[in-house]
């Protein structure tokens, strides 16, 4: 398992649990899952590129 596949798997599983815990209808859950998954992956990639600017730290 590589870094990115681990991140994607982690994001999927955690997003599913939070969607089921916090929302009541199927539509709300699906939307929440998508938003949370996108936030996990998107922010991780953004953070990675941000760290790329500081290679010696």
């Amino acid at each position: 398992m590589g870094h990115f596949s681990s991140l994607v798997l982690y994001s999927v599983l955690v997003s599913i649990v939070f969607a089921l815990l916090t929302k009541d209808t199927q539509k709300e859950r699906a939307l929440y899952f998508l938003k949370m998954f996108a936030a996990f992956v998107g922010l991780s990639i953004l953070s990675a590129w941000f760290m790329y600017l500081f290679p010696f730290w």
Partner: peptide
């Protein structure tokens, strides 16, 4: 249904933790 999904997700997280 909710319980089965929770079981699968937690077991997957735990198993992957051991696997990694």
């Amino acid at each position: 249904a909710r319980g089965v999904i929770f079981f699968l997700c937690i077991m997957a997280l735990f198993s992957m933790g051991i696997f990694l």
